Simulated scan of single mutants.
Amino acid sequence: MIILLYDHTWPGMLSAIFEAFDRKLTNCMIRRARAHMPSAFDQDIEVTTNTMKAARVITGLKKKLSADGFHQFYACFLSELHGIEDTLFAYTRLIFSSKDRVEQAFANAAVLRVSQVAKSVHREKHRMEAFVRFRLASDSLFFAEVEPDFNVLPLILNHFEKRYADQRWLIYDMKRNYGIYYDLEKVTEVTLQRTVGVKETAGIFHEEEPLYESLWNDYFKHVNIRERKNTKLHLQHVPRRYWKHLTEKNKL
């Protein structure tokens, strides 16, 4: 089996797909280099990321897919699920071998998988847009920690750039150790040399931040109606895995 290894990036994965087509490979797998375990029975090929080759794949996909279909393709890549690259490669082969659009051909395993994974990623995207809680730092930067199941920061940056256009903010993915920073002009990707948890940040946040958090907690406490409490329904909308970064779920 031929294994195409790429650098974990979107252009890198597209470069691997280009390489597979260029070499006319049909029986191959695409894997992230960092997570790959070599095997004596496989032939590993390291793919160099090439933005021009990646752009050619994107151009081809956009010609054969609707805007929503291409967005689903990208969302699947951001899922980071094991083997999702093979699904996307199989999907790409189907796309380029068919005269008609195939994104609704759910009888095909790759098409169905792309649709299902994209829905899960977009569900996580909407949850992050709702569950991000900013804290005011001492330098007037609004900072938020998140740990989404999927790599959805690239999907939520437009939402926050438009909604908080007059504020400097940083949303940091603690699981993947990178964040998106808005400086009042543009959004850029950043990486912190050392990440710290909320409980270890004394002196970093603005002196009035505890007051705002207290007011926020009091608000949720008073709007809650005990007689209408439905824990099962609440957990469906706000799963426990998000609670550690929700101000209203943490007592000061």
Score class of each variant (00 low, 15 high):
Ser66Ile: 04
Glu80Phe: 12
Ala75Lys: 15
Val57Asp: 11
Glu85Leu: 05
Asp68Tyr: 04
Phe77Asn: 03
Leu88Arg: 05
Ile58Met: 15
Asp86Pro: 00
Leu61Pro: 01
Ile58His: 15
Ile58Trp: 14
Lys63Gly: 03
Lys62Ala: 12
Ala40Asn: 08
Asn50Ile: 07
Asp44Pro: 01
Ala40Tyr: 09
Leu81His: 08
Ala90Arg: 10
Ala67Asn: 10
Asp44Tyr: 01
Gly60Asn: 12
Glu46Gln: 08
Ile58Pro: 14
Ala75Ile: 13
Arg93Ser: 12
Tyr74Val: 14
Glu46Leu: 10
Phe41Thr: 03
Ala54Glu: 12
Ile84Gln: 05
Glu80Ser: 13
Thr92Val: 00
Thr59His: 02
Lys64Ile: 10
Ala90Phe: 04
Asp44Ser: 06
Phe70Tyr: 15
Glu80Asn: 14
Ile58Leu: 15
Leu61Trp: 12
Ile58Asn: 15
Gly83Tyr: 04
Ser79Glu: 07
Phe89Asp: 01
Ile84Trp: 03
Phe70Thr: 09
His82Val: 13
Ser79Met: 09
Ala40His: 07
Lys64Glu: 12
Thr49Gln: 14
Gly60Met: 10
His82Tyr: 14
Leu81Val: 08
Arg93Val: 12
Thr92Met: 02
Cys76Trp: 10
Thr49Val: 13
Glu80Met: 14
Phe41Trp: 01
Ala40Glu: 08
Gln72Arg: 13
Gly60His: 10
Gln43His: 01
Ala75Tyr: 13
Thr59Ser: 03
Phe70Asn: 11
Glu46Pro: 03
Ser79Thr: 05
Lys53His: 11
Arg93Lys: 15
Gln72Thr: 07
Phe77Arg: 06
Thr92Gln: 00
Ile84Pro: 00
Gly69Ser: 10
Lys63Gln: 09
Thr51Pro: 06
Thr59Tyr: 03
Thr48Ala: 04
Ala67Lys: 10
Ala54Gln: 13
Ser66Arg: 05
Tyr74Asn: 14
Asp86Phe: 06
Asp68Leu: 07
Phe89Arg: 07
Ala67Gly: 08
Ile45Pro: 01
Ala55Lys: 15
Ala55Phe: 14
His71Lys: 14
Thr87Leu: 02
Ala40Val: 09
Gln43Phe: 01
Glu46Met: 07
Thr59Phe: 06
Ser66Gly: 08
Phe73His: 05
Ile45Ala: 03
Asp44Val: 05
Gln43Pro: 00
Lys63Leu: 12
Glu85Cys: 04
Thr48Gly: 01
Asp42Met: 05
Thr48Cys: 04
Phe89Cys: 02
Gly83His: 02
Gly83Ser: 02
Val57Trp: 10
Leu61Tyr: 10
Lys62Gln: 14
Leu81Gln: 12
Asn50Glu: 10
Leu61Asp: 04
Met52Leu: 12
Phe89Gln: 02
His82Met: 12
Gln72Met: 12
Asn50Gly: 07
Asp42Leu: 02
Gln43Thr: 03
Met52Glu: 13
Tyr91Thr: 00
Thr51Trp: 06
Ala90Leu: 07
Leu88Gly: 04
